[in-house]
Structures are given as C-alpha cells and as structure tokens.
Deep mutational scan, measured.
Amino acid sequence: DETGKFLVLSLYDYQEKSPREVTMKKGDILTLLNSTNKDWWKVEVNGRQGFVPAAYVKFL
C-alpha cells in the first residue's frame, strides 16, 4: 500500500471551491493520498484532506 508514501509539490496557489477540495499555496509540500483520478488528486495539506487539480502539483 503506497498511500501517504509520496510527496508532491504545489506549483500554483489553489483556492478550494467546494468542501471536498483543499486550499494550497505555491511551494507547499503535500502528502499524496490518492492519484487514481487523472484530473483530481487527493492530498493532505496542513492537517486537512481533500482534492486538488492534478495539473497543479508534481512529484518530488
């Protein structure tokens, strides 16, 4: 199980638009929880879990 094993870097600021999403700032290091959807990845940032656009992050 690779859940929570990968870190990704936020390339852009992102403001959550729904309760299922999370806000991140450019340069944030996020824990990747799920990347099965090619468009939206589930991450943990600042103690919160939610989705961010996959195009806004990259693997470290």
Rank of each mutant, 00 (worst) to 15 (best):
D1Y: 13
E2G: 14
E2I: 14
T3V: 13
T3K: 14
G4N: 13
G4E: 13
K5E: 09
K5A: 11
K5R: 14
K5F: 13
F6V: 15
F6K: 12
L7F: 14
V8L: 15
V8Y: 09
V8I: 09
V8A: 09
L9R: 09
L9M: 13
L9K: 09
S10M: 06
Y12D: 07
D13C: 07
D13L: 03
Y14G: 01
Y14H: 04
Y14S: 02
Y14E: 02
Q15S: 11
Q15D: 14
E16N: 07
E16G: 15
E16M: 12
K17L: 09
S18K: 07
S18W: 06
P19R: 08
E21Y: 06
E21V: 05
T23R: 05
M24K: 00
M24S: 00
K25W: 08
K26A: 13
K26E: 07
K26P: 04
G27V: 01
G27C: 08
G27Y: 05
G27I: 01
G27A: 02
G27E: 03
D28T: 08
I29S: 03
I29T: 06
L30V: 08
L30A: 08
L30C: 11
T31H: 10
T31R: 13
T31Y: 12
L32V: 12
L32G: 02
L33H: 04
L33V: 11
N34M: 08
T36R: 11
N37T: 06
N37S: 10
N37G: 10
N37L: 08
K38A: 12
K38P: 14
D39S: 11
W40M: 06
W40R: 01
W40T: 01
W41G: 00
W41P: 01
W41H: 02
K42V: 13
V43H: 00
E44Y: 06
E44V: 08
V45E: 01
V45Q: 08
V45Y: 09
N46E: 09
N46R: 10
N46I: 04
N46T: 04
R48M: 08
R48H: 07
R48G: 04
Q49N: 07
G50S: 01
G50Y: 04
F51C: 12
F51S: 02
V52T: 01
P53Y: 04
P53V: 05
P53L: 05
P53K: 04
P53M: 04
P53Q: 03
A54P: 03
A54V: 05
A54D: 01
A54E: 01
A54L: 02
A54Q: 04
A55R: 15
A55V: 10
Y56K: 07
V57N: 00
V57Q: 00
V57H: 00
V57G: 00
V57M: 06
K58T: 15
K58H: 09
F59E: 08
F59W: 09
L60V: 11
